Simulated scan of single mutants.
Amino acid sequence: MLTETTVADIRILIMPLPEFAMLPFGGFLDKLRFTADEADYSRQRYCTWQILGLEAGSIKSSSGIDIQVQATPAEIHCADFDYLVVFGGRNAQATQSLAPRYKNILRKAAGHGVQLVCIDNACFLLAACGLLNGHKVALHWRHEAEFRFSFPRIEVVSGQMYCFDGGRISCAGGMAAIDLAIEMLARACGRSRALKGLADMLVDEARSSSHQLRSLDTEAATSRHTGRAIALMHNLLSASKTTDELAGMVGISRRQLDRQFLSEHGMTAKNYWNELRLQHVQWRLLNSGHSLAVIADEAGIADVSYLGKIFRKRFGMSPALFRKALPGMPSDL
């Protein structure tokens, strides 16, 4: 807690949603802890935080770990805080459906000038509450197509770890939550204090918002042109672009692009792009209750029956049977 002579530089409300991921939550919170004190006593001196929940009790993470709620909306005064950091749930569709329950506290905080921070899928909640209108958003690459489809008027910044845009801050989640925490703390407490504890966390350095994730490509030895093409394939998953147009955007001919893909990935650029789309469809069937028609649009496949055909050829069963085999998932496609 603060002493009588110490005033916190940054005051944060942390609101994990049901089924939130522990990785970004733990990384973000531990970075605050290291910066909050001169030594390593976990005292909240230079930054303070509270765990906020809609009601008293605990909130269960996606890994089954319960986090105790420290305050409810009735017990706080929003003007006493600088940021409200929301950690999204495992399922984007379920997170979005929470809007009626969370709209009041989010809008109240924004009305008091509190900066709203959405981490991982929390951007779906803020967007559904109308709180991202006119703002840019950075989110996990797996959810970009789904977000663009659900909120086509909100600008998505592809390939960014986090994004500051006025009173709204967004973060892709995972380990990027640590990088976001560093940037938030640097702006409030100074760079030196923000970097405190990184060695203890076994983190080499703070990554910028534009840091390119090397592990996103399955082939580490990919060439410059192929790597650029794969990044564009991810960003243009739902677009009606041809492989010839893709090659033009990369700056080489279609034949050269195919030659490089065959050499590095054993398939043409078109086939690699189709595989990305099918992998996206499979992942969305595993992690959402959206209809196949919605998922097909996200993957840039206009004909649902054609999608069913190529999905069956690739995975050995229809999308309906694939989803039906998953416990707790709807089977009506």
Rank of each mutant, 00 (worst) to 15 (best):
M1V: 15
T5P: 15
T6W: 15
V7N: 13
V7W: 14
I10W: 08
I14M: 06
P16L: 04
E19I: 08
A21N: 02
G26W: 08
G26R: 11
K31C: 02
L32T: 03
F34D: 02
T35R: 09
A39V: 12
A39F: 14
S42Y: 15
S42A: 15
S42Q: 14
S42K: 12
Q44C: 09
Q44A: 08
T48W: 00
W49L: 02
L52Q: 12
L52H: 02
G53W: 04
E55T: 09
G57H: 03
G57V: 01
S62T: 07
S62H: 05
S62V: 11
T72R: 07
P73Y: 02
E75F: 08
C78T: 13
Y83C: 02
F87L: 10
G88R: 02
N91E: 11
A94L: 04
T95D: 05
A99H: 02
P100D: 01
Y102P: 03
I105A: 12
I105N: 03
R107A: 15
V117K: 09
C118T: 12
I119Y: 06
D120Y: 12
N121M: 08
N121T: 03
F124Q: 00
L125F: 00
L126D: 01
L126A: 06
C129D: 07
L131G: 07
H135T: 05
K136S: 06
V137H: 04
R142C: 09
A145K: 00
F151K: 06
F151C: 01
Y162D: 01
F164P: 11
D165M: 01
G166W: 01
S170C: 11
C171H: 04
C171F: 07
A176C: 06
A177S: 01
I178H: 00
L180H: 08
A181F: 05
I182R: 13
L185A: 12
R187T: 11
S192C: 14
R193P: 10
K196V: 01
G197N: 08
L198V: 06
V203G: 02
D204K: 15
D204H: 15
A206F: 12
S208D: 15
S208Y: 13
S210F: 14
L213E: 10
R214I: 10
E219I: 12
A221T: 12
A221F: 08
R224Q: 13
R228N: 08
A229F: 02
L236T: 05
L237Y: 03
L237W: 00
S238D: 10
T243M: 10
E245D: 10
L246W: 01
G248P: 04
M249E: 14
V250A: 04
I252V: 11
I252Y: 02
I252C: 11
R254Q: 12
F261H: 06
H265F: 03
H265P: 00
M267E: 07
A269W: 04
A269Q: 12
K270P: 09
Y272K: 07
Y272S: 04
W273S: 00
E275D: 14
L276C: 05
V281P: 00
Q282K: 14
L286W: 05
N287I: 03
H290G: 14
S291H: 07
A293H: 15
V294H: 06
E298Y: 04
S305A: 11
L307K: 01
R312L: 07
K313F: 08
R314L: 03
L321G: 09
L321P: 11
F322E: 05
R323M: 04
K324A: 11
L326Q: 00
M329I: 09
